[in-house]
Design a protein around this nucleic acid. Structure first.
Length: 444
RNA sequence: GCGGGCAUAGCUCAGGUGGUUAGAGCGUCUGACUGUGGCUCAGAAGGUCGUCGGUUCGAGUCCGACUGCCCGCCCCA
């Protein structure tokens, strides 16, 4: 577009919490995600993609009150004010339900559950899927927190218990190993143990969520502070809840008292005992996880001392699919916090150079001849393209040099007449005249 | 939802106590004897100083409001 026709210049800017990814960054991210996807496929998980937009009715109420507020809502199309009763226009809260019925997805689990409920008839259970897509949250952005970010989820629907748990842990371990992350710790807990603990301290059952939220703060504010908070309100926490202690006999004795955990007792010691440099497993009786839909095992992976918080998390959930009218299927999932993993790997990761191409520079050759050369190189499997215009050779050379290319093919009228081309090696500062058929091989 | 900071060219920033045509570096574009890279040199384009209002003879500079962005908190990945 000619500059003169441009109505007015626009400030090149992005809304808060949204990011661009330049070529080098896209390559780095893609490579990482590809690595994870391969591992998921290895365990029999199949890819799924769902749209950015979901019906509000699907999303509302799944993430708690906080989550509902963080949904990016989409204004209805057309005359969205038509049919809105006058009294509704008094405040934004009353108006909102009338003017929006869609929102950007908030996570990948709920859309997956929606899809599974919709296709339950044709699916083979247990259904295993992985999904790597962006999600959106109308959060206040800050360091390391964005309004648009990728999630990377694996879930198995129609299975429960210790075996899926072991698989999830193996996937996490394989993933961390493949990405080169060392020294991670998986904190493991079970909602049933939390319920048991709440009963033990005689915490009101209807406020179980508050109990969990308070206990969950232990990793942030420390066990003594949590203990003191409870004591202030007259609740004495049993010693076995202290996450600082090693897996004690006392803790195992308590776990043994929880009915839904009894069958797993034979496996847990070896799981917790194994030492692995990439991922250790530690029972953490204070781990609760925020999302309300978890009903069984919950887990969270952290790298001590990394300063990036948890890098993967998940758990077992029972009724998400049946909430959408689908069959009542237990499920378990693992979500890699890939934005945090990207951040973690940023310091060590060498900058990714793009694949080198051959640039065809030209002066007074015919476009047809230039096109012919590019085709010849492509036919030989070489990545190549022509400079878009016969600009000064200096410019074309500089372009190839700045792009980091090694080979540049130069043609003019003389080369076209003789069916040849100049092949210049920018690394070794050499140049030779070659017949076309020898060109591709020379720049391997 | 709460608190703090900042806002001048595409980017990073200068512009003491208000005073003519707002500057630098980087980047972009053009050129330095007709077809050869990294360097150098010369030149050009690019800003309603976030927006609106106020004080003043005069505002990038002082005051207010709004908006945007950044950083914390809640919460989260």
């Amino acid at each position: 577009m000619p500059r003169a026709l441009k109505p007015e210049k626009v400030r090149p800017a992005l809304p808060s919490g949204f990011r661009d990814f330049g070529p080098a960054e896209v390559r780095r991210r893609r490579r990482l995600l590809h690595t994870l996807a391969q591992i998921f496929e290895q365990y029999g998980y199949e890819p799924l993609e769902t749209p950015a937009v979901e019906l509000l009715s699907v999303l509302l109420g799944k993430y708690g009150e906080e989550g509902d507020k963080l949904l990016f809502r989409i204004l209805n199309s057309g005359d969205f004010l038509a049919g809105v009763p006058d009294e509704a226009t008094q405040s934004s809260t009353t108006l909102l339900p009338y003017i929006t019925d869609k929102a950007l997805r908030y996570d990948l689990t709920v859309p997956m559950a929606r899809w599974v409920a919709q296709h339950a008839g044709e699916l083979v259970f247990p259904f295993k899927r992985y999904q790597i897509q962006p999600v959106w949250r109308a959060d206040r952005p800050q360091r390391g927190r964005f309004r648009e970010f990728y999630q990377c989820d694996v879930d198995i629907v129609g299975a429960e218990g210790i075996v899926p748990l072991l698989e999830m842990i193996d996937i996490a371990r394989a993933g961390l190993k493949a990405l080169g992350i060392q020294g991670a710790v998986l904190h493991l807990n079970h909602r049933a143990l939390l319920e048991y603990a709440a009963q033990e301290v005689k915490w009101p059952a209807e406020q179980f969520g508050t109990f969990c939220a308070r206990l969950d703060k232990a990793d942030k504010i420390g066990w003594p502070t949590v203990e003191a908070l409870f004591r202030e309100e007259g609740y004495t926490l049993p010693a076995w809840l202290n996450p600082g202690l090693d897996v004690s006999e006392a803790l195992f004795n308590e776990i043994a008292k929880v009915p839904s955990l009894q069958s797993d007792l034979s496996v847990l010691p070896s799981l917790l005992g194994s030492s692995d440099e990439a991922l250790r497993v530690k029972w953490d009786p204070t781990l609760a996880r925020g999302l309300e839909y978890y009903t069984g095992y919950v887990y969270e992976i952290r790298v001590p001392g990394s300063g990036v918080g948890s890098i993967a998390a998940g758990g077992a959930y029972a009724s998400l699919v049946s909430d959408f009218g689908g069959p009542d299927l237990p499920a378990m999932g693992l979500s890699f916090g890939i934005e945090r993993i990207f951040a973690l790997l940023e310091d060590t990761g060498a900058s990714e150079a793009g694949p080198s191409s051959v640039l065809v520079a030209w002066i007074d050759a015919s476009p047809t001849y230039v096109q012919h050369i590019v085709r010849t190189l492509h036919a030989a499997g070489q990545s190549a393209f022509a400079y878009p215009a016969p600009k000064k050779l200096t410019k074309q050379l500089e372009y190839a040099q700045r792009r980091g290319f090694r080979w540049i093919v130069i043609v003019g009228a003389h080369e076209e007449q003789t069916e040849t081309a100049q092949l210049k090696d920018l690394h070794h500062h050499t140049q030779q005249t070659l017949p076309l058929h020898a060109l591709a091989e020379a720049c391997q």
